[in-house]
Each structure stands twice: as C-alpha cells, then as structure tokens.
Design a protein around this nucleic acid. Structure first.
Lengths: 301, 301
DNA sequence: GAAATAGTGTCTCTCAGACAATATGCA
DNA sequence: TGCATATTGTCTGAGAGACACTATTTC
C-alpha cells in the first residue's frame, strides 16, 4: 500500500491534501412524489366506494415559484445518504412515514432551477391509504393531497432517414377541493439507427413549481409499469383489505377495468385469507385478506 | 408577477440576491458502464464464433485507487446537462460514441468516495460490436475491455416478524488477457409489512476502484431485465447481422441457451430481411437482417 | 458424404381475455 | 324480493417451452 502518484504522494497523503473546493459543485436536492389512494368508506352503505390516486404537494412559502405547489423535498445534507435525505425531508415537511420508497430518476438539466445549478434525485413513495393525515412542517406553508388524472392528448410518429421520432403529449391534472393545477408534458422518443433516446419536457405548467410536472408524470408511469409484475400496489393498502378493494386499487393505477376472475387468479399467491369477513354492507360480505409476506417474485431476486 | 416573499422581495430580486454558496454542496460525478460483445469472426471457418459480454474499464492514473480499474466518468461541469457530461467523459477517456445510453441509478452514500462527499449518477451504455476500438485519453492511463462473468454464490431467506430478509451474494469476475478483477456484491431485500427495501453492498473487491463493482453488477441486471421486452439488444449489433448472431447476443446477456424456433418468432417483427446472404461459411448461408426501424414496443410509448 | 448451421413445423401447457352462473347479506 | 357485490367456473386463443425434421453450404 505504498503506491505513489506522479507527485510522489501516497494515498493517505493525497486524501489529506485533497481540496474538494477546487471544482465548482452543483446543488443536489431530493424530491419525492408520494402517492396514496383515497378511501371514502362509510360514505355509501350500498355501493363500492370511489377511489382515486392522489399525490402530495407542498405550497411554496418562498421564492422561486412562491405560492405554487411543489413535491416535498430539499437539499441533501453533507452527512446523510441520499435515501435518508428523502425520508427526512418527507418527515419534516409532512410528518409522514411512507410504506414504500424507491429511487425514480435524476434530473440534471442546467437550467431546471432558476436559483442555481440544481440536480434533483427524485423518489417514488407510496402510503397506506388509511394513514394519510398530514401535518405541514416548518419548511412548508401548506401541504395538500391532489387527485391525479393524466390524459394522452396526442401521439405523433415521424419517419426519419434511418429511424423515427415519436412524440406524445400528456396532460396532467391535479385536483384538490380548492384548485386544479395542470401541466402538459411532451415525451420524445428518438430512434436513429440503433440509437434510442428518450426525453421528457414540460410544455406548459400552471400552479406547479419547477419541473415537478414531469417528475409526477414519470412517477405515475413507473407505478403503472411496476404494478403488473411486482407487489408494489400493496404499499397503498392497509393491513387488511378485501379483494375487490385491491382490484379497485389496481384499476385506479392502470386506469382501466380488470376482469374479476382473472385478477383473483393473478394475485392469488400474493395474499392470504384471514377467515374474517367485512360486515355491515348491503351485499354478500367479502373476506378480508392480508399481504402474504412469503410471496416471492422469483424473477426479481 | 409581483408576488413578494416574507422579506418583501419579488422573484427577480430574490434570484439576484440568492447565494448558492450558503449550503455545503456535494461533488457530483457521472460514471458509465459501457458494454459490447466480442466478435471473433474469421477465426473459425466452421463453427459459430464464441461471443462474450465485455465492459470497458479505465486504469486509474492518480489517487485514490491508483492503479486500479474504474468505470469511465468524471465530474459534472457547471454548464452541462448530466447526460451531456456522461457522453463527454466517455469521449474524452475512450474516444467512443455509444449506440445506446440510459441513466441507471444514482449512488449517494456518504462515504462511497474517500476524497469527499461524491454522488455518482451512473449510466448504462452499449456499443455496436464492430466499433470497439478504444483510444485511452488524457485523463486515463489505460483503457481495456474486460469480459464479464457473474455467478450467484449464495441465496438466503430469513423470516422475520412480519416479513422476511433475502440476501444474495453475487461474484463478479472481470477478465482481460492480463488480469482478472473480482468483486462480491451482496444484494439485500428487506420486506417488512408492506415496506420493501433493496440495498446493494460491496463485500469484497480486488482491482476495482470505488464501489464500481456494484454499479457494474447492477448494470448487468438491468441489461438482462430489459433485453426481454425492449429492443435494447440491437444497441450491441452491427447494421447487418444474421438471426443466429442476434440469438447468440441474447444468450450471452441472459446467460442461457434459447430455443431457435421460439426466438425467431419472438423477434420476427423487430427485424427486416435484406435479401442478402452470408458467404464463405461451411454451412447453409444465413440471411442478413437489419433492425426494423418501424418496430414499436407499443407498451412503452 | 460428413460436418455444421439455417430455417420451419408441430405438440403441449400455461395463462390472459372474456363472459357466465351461482351465493349471500341488507334495505 | 330485489339490489349489489362476492366467489367460482369455463371457453378460447395467443404464446412460451420443448423437440424434431428438412435444407444447403464447404471440406
């Protein structure tokens, strides 16, 4: 271990003399799109409760984007891992402990933040739908759940010399009891020879801060992709639930109706019956299930 | 647009007075795992050529990890997007233009770099197997292709109160004509209630710098996952190729044999025949195909 | 003709899509 | 009794897994 570099320094000497300030460094934030599903139970005795996918936003109390709505998040501290930073910011701003969290994507265009160069590491988080009480913290003037709706506005495919360009415009609508925020995101896929490239741009945005519209849109896409072949949806469920409730959650995420028989076969091995039954509803009582902690998505591990 | 914050500043005034230096910031690097597949054609007239998956590494010319091998990469400049930074570093260090590139994951543990706090945004890149001539650049003492082999050493599953912990040890071996580097990566999956968490740790590592062993291992996993349902494999193919060559590439990535008939059905719509045929081989000549640029993986767009 | 790979045919089994039939609690 | 949902059954077709057969080139 006595290797010396071209200046004759050993590794230890080098580290001691290393000046971290010699390069200009970007700021780094973590931003978390945390989702839950509304459960307006006990509202209706007869019908199945309506459910919606919701994302949590924080009203900005300072510049830039003062008064607009942003994902909970903030700057990474020097002494904490980035995953820890995401958990801490969420706790500070909303007092929530999520039931699932994964890193989503890192956004690093030069001008995505008007203050200075900011690279944002985004996270996708889920919350058990029975635990969604929020308390806005110090950093945030206000926190609120927004119902999410996304619609594909237009698709376009242009052939080029040795490939094609596909563009897709998606409208994202975020609705609370007070306001509706919206954004249009353009997703671009460029295929040139064997080179493939994806890009995601905010075309217009009202009421949403920074480039958080595209981060939310990308989160939804990830959620939708993963719900099929992982157990990610259980991050949105309470401890005990009926199969119809579970199916409804899948339907809300995927944005389409599923066939009951087929759905039950598919998730059969992921749940365990409890032997207990739902009561007080004006129809045949459904058995309560819980997540089967022994379920193994073989492929993924 | 005359909103004022609690200090009475407008957005414009705020931006002007913003001091980016008031928070301590981490360094940010981009690191790229670029893969290709060897093509030792014309070596054997009779048999199919042997193919291997290779990753490009750079020998470190300075501390830390002097003399060890690292992924090409470096610090992000203040005036460039992170994607651009990845392309630039690859060009500077190896003079390669890759045929596919996607962001992989961002690694942000506090002590992953002995110099200072460094967050690394990693990329997965692929290179057409006929264009893999490298020229080591200024920043790098040496660049070399390493044949990749990974083996699962052990799997363990421990039940806990309300879930389980799965651990998997993977040995990564990187072989060149001169040396063999190796690493053991521990992949941990923690399921607790509905909370799921993945972690990836370097258990031991010889000849590989930083935590690049786990980055390479994760890249391979991503490549393996995507090869099934995307056109990612074509990033490793030359313009024209036979279906057997393509199948061999799939087999090398997946690490298992595939059935010919079934493989051909699967990729039928992704390729176009050229009408031309391979010549000079001691067997029935194979038609040359090219990637069908109109192929559309419907789901992904 | 032998070696070696190219290219096609077919049988089975599983699983998703689609629809139908029966069961049960409460107003 | 009728509404609304729970739960189970079955038909069909697409596709993956597995194996086998024929074709064509060079040595």
């Amino acid at each position: 271990m006595e290797l010396r570099d071209h200046q004759g320094l050993t590794a230890e000497e080098f580290i001691k003399s290393y000046d971290a300030g010699k390069f200009e460094r970007p700021s780094v934030t973590v931003d978390t799109a945390i989702f839950t599903i509304t459960s307006d139970d006990e509202v209706n005795q007869r019908n199945l409760s309506n459910r919606e996918l919701q994302v949590l936003l924080i009203k900005r109390g300072g510049h830039p984007f003062l008064g607009q709505w942003a994902l909970p998040g903030g700057f990474v501290n020097p002494a904490e891992d980035i995953d820890q930073a995401a958990v801490r910011e969420l706790k500070e701003e909303t007092n929530l402990d999520c039931s699932y969290m994964e890193q989503l994507y890192t956004w690093g265009e030069v001008n995505r933040d008007p203050r200075t160069r900011v690279i944002s590491i985004s996270y996708l988080a889920l919350l058990d739908s029975t635990k969604f009480d929020i308390q806005a913290g110090d950093d945030a003037a206000d926190a609120k759940w927004y119902t999410v709706k996304d619609t594909v506005l237009k698709k376009e495919k242009t052939l080029t010399e040795n490939g094609f360009i596909q563009q897709k415009w998606v409208r994202l609508e975020l609705m609370s009891d007070e306001v509706t925020l919206s954004a249009v995101i353009k997703i671009i896929k460029i295929v040139k020879g064997t080179t493939i490239e994806y890009r995601r741009e905010v075309v217009e945005q009202t009421g949403i801060a920074f480039d958080h519209g595209r981060i939310i849109q990308y989160s939804i896409e990830r959620l939708r992709n993963k719900v099929d072949y992982t157990d990610i949806a259980f991050g949105l469920m309470p401890q005990r639930f009926t199969l119809s409730e579970l199916q409804k959650v899948y339907e809300v995420i995927l944005g389409k109706k599923l066939y009951k028989a087929q759905f039950r076969l598919k998730i059969e091995k992921m749940v365990n019956g409890t032997g207990e039954f739902q009561r007080g509803k004006a129809h045949k009582p459904a058995e309560l299930f819980r997540f089967n902690p022994n379920w193994d998505e073989d492929d993924n591990f």
